Simulated scan of single mutants.
Amino acid sequence: MSIRKKPSKKAKNGYVYEVNFTYKINGVSHRYWKGGFKTKKEAQDHENQKRMEFANSTTVFECHKTLKEVYDEFMEIGSNEFQYNTIYNTKKTLHYWYGKDATMDLGNIPIRDIGYRTLQQFFNKRSNCGKECNVGIKKALTRIFVFAIRSEYITTNPVEYVKVTGVENKQEKHILTYEEFKMFLQELRNKNTFEYDAISVAVLIGFYTGLRISEVMALQKEDFDLEEDTIFVHRKLNYKGKKKKDIEAVEQMKSKSSKAVIPLPAILKQELIVWFKMNPYENVICDEDGNLLDPDCTGNKLRTISNKLGIPFHFHLLRHTYTTSLVNAHVDVKVAQELLRHANFNTTMSIYAHVDYKKKQSVVNQVFCGENVVKTSKNKTLS
C-alpha cells in the first residue's frame, strides 16, 4: 500500500497519513516517502503529483542501435557486475535470437522497436522447445534490456511482460542411495590412477558436504582445518567455455552466503588424511601434475561410469542427496539452510528438498491404519 495511516499524538484526530512507494528512473529503483498529511485525499493527491514528476524525469536518447549492438555494448560495459557463469550463459543464448539459425532474428531489429508483441511471438514459436532453455533466454534478454534502460536507449523493459512456455522435464530427481554411492566410489577407485582417485575424493566431498562441483574442484589443503574439523569454502572454479590451461580458482562466490565455514564430517576427515598423504600438491582435486581438473571433463568420466553401472548420476545429484538426507533426518530447516549456504530460505525448502517415496508411503500407512483412524474419529472435529 502506498498510502498508510499512522497514529500521531500531535494530530487532532489522533492519526496522519504518509506516502510510501517505489519508482524507477532508467531502470534503477528508488523509494519515495513523505508523511504528515491530515487527510487520505491530501496524501493521494501528493502521490499522484510525485509519480507524474518521476515519470517525466526519465530521459531517452535518440537510439537506432539494434539489439545485437546493445548486446555487444552490454558485454563490453555492463557485464562486470555479473558473475562469470552468468555472462557465459548469456553468451550461450545468442544464437537463439540472432543470425540465420535463430528462431527469429531479433538481433537486427532496433531495440526501441522490439516490444511485447514481438518478444511474445518469438517465445510462442519456441513453445515446443525445453522450458528451462526458454527461461534462460528470457533471463539473458532481460539483462540486455535493463542495460538499455540504464543507458537511456529505452524507457521500459518489454521482456518482463512475456510469458514463457515450453516442454518441461518431468523426470523425477533421483536420490543416490548409500549403496549406490559406495558402488560408484568403488568403480572410480578400481581405475587405479591418480586422476580417478582424485575424482573419487571429489565425490566423497560432494556426498558428505553437499558442495557444488565448482567449489569442490577449487579446494586447497589449507581450506581444511583437521584440528577444528572445519572446511573454509571461499573459492570456486571459472571453467565454462575455457581450455584446461585457462581454468582458474576465484573468490567470487555465487552469493554472500556461499562463502562460509562448514563442519568437516569425521568419516570424510579420515578419507582426506589418507588422500593428503598420497597427494603432494596444494590443490586437493588435481591431476598427476597438480593441475586443476576440468569439471566438464570430470562430468564426462562420471557419466561413463553412470552408464556402466546403470545408476543415474551427475555431480549435482550429490547436493540433492545431501539435502534430502538432512530433511529426512528432521534436521532443523534453518540449520539445513546454513549447511547448504543458501541465500534464500525458500531455496532450501522448495528446490532441493525431496522426501523419498518410501517415507511418504510410511506416513500415509501410519496415519490411515485402522487403529489410528478410529482414534482420530473420536477426537473433536476441527473447524
Results as ranks from 00 to 15, higher is better:
320 H>Q: 12
51 R>P: 05
258 S>C: 07
111 I>T: 05
149 I>M: 15
20 N>I: 12
258 S>K: 04
50 K>G: 05
142 T>L: 05
59 T>N: 13
38 K>N: 12
379 N>A: 02
65 K>P: 06
149 I>Y: 09
357 Y>R: 14
141 L>R: 01
332 D>M: 08
232 F>P: 03
54 F>P: 00
369 C>S: 07
178 Y>P: 00
169 N>I: 08
29 S>N: 11
165 T>I: 06
68 K>M: 13
270 Q>I: 13
28 V>Q: 14
203 V>N: 02
114 I>V: 13
164 V>P: 00
80 N>C: 08
34 K>M: 09
174 H>N: 13
141 L>C: 12
99 G>M: 08
208 Y>K: 06
375 K>L: 12
44 Q>P: 04
162 V>I: 09
291 N>Y: 07
362 S>F: 12
79 S>Y: 02
320 H>Y: 13
151 S>T: 08
331 V>Y: 10
170 K>S: 10
367 V>S: 10
311 I>Y: 05
351 I>S: 12
120 Q>K: 07
343 A>L: 01
62 E>F: 09
279 N>D: 07
363 V>G: 01
242 K>V: 04
34 K>S: 07
304 T>C: 04
318 L>K: 05
45 D>G: 10
88 Y>S: 14
103 T>S: 07
173 K>P: 01
72 D>I: 03
114 I>H: 00
206 G>M: 04
383 S>I: 01
199 I>M: 12
383 S>V: 02
285 I>N: 05
377 S>H: 05
237 L>M: 12
375 K>H: 01
346 N>V: 09
356 D>L: 13
361 Q>T: 14
6 K>W: 03
107 G>H: 04
30 H>G: 09
14 G>F: 11
326 L>N: 04
217 M>Q: 02
243 K>C: 07
138 K>I: 11
124 N>W: 02
121 Q>T: 13
69 E>P: 02
141 L>S: 06
219 L>P: 01
228 E>T: 07
94 L>G: 01
88 Y>K: 11
96 Y>I: 03
66 T>R: 10
152 E>R: 15
192 N>E: 14
52 M>F: 11
64 H>Q: 14
268 L>N: 06
155 T>F: 04
197 D>I: 01
253 M>I: 05
233 V>Q: 02
21 F>I: 10
128 N>H: 14
184 F>V: 01
17 Y>Q: 03
375 K>W: 02
164 V>W: 04
84 Y>Q: 06
275 W>T: 02
223 D>R: 01
339 L>S: 00
182 K>M: 14
265 P>N: 05
304 T>K: 15
158 P>D: 10
368 F>K: 05
308 K>G: 02
281 Y>I: 07
65 K>F: 12
190 N>M: 10
129 C>W: 01
39 T>W: 11
6 K>I: 15
12 K>C: 05
6 K>L: 14
226 L>E: 08
311 I>N: 04
310 G>I: 12
182 K>G: 04
213 I>T: 10
215 E>S: 13
256 K>H: 12
372 N>H: 14
133 C>R: 08
297 C>E: 11
286 C>W: 05
230 T>S: 15
6 K>N: 11
148 A>S: 15
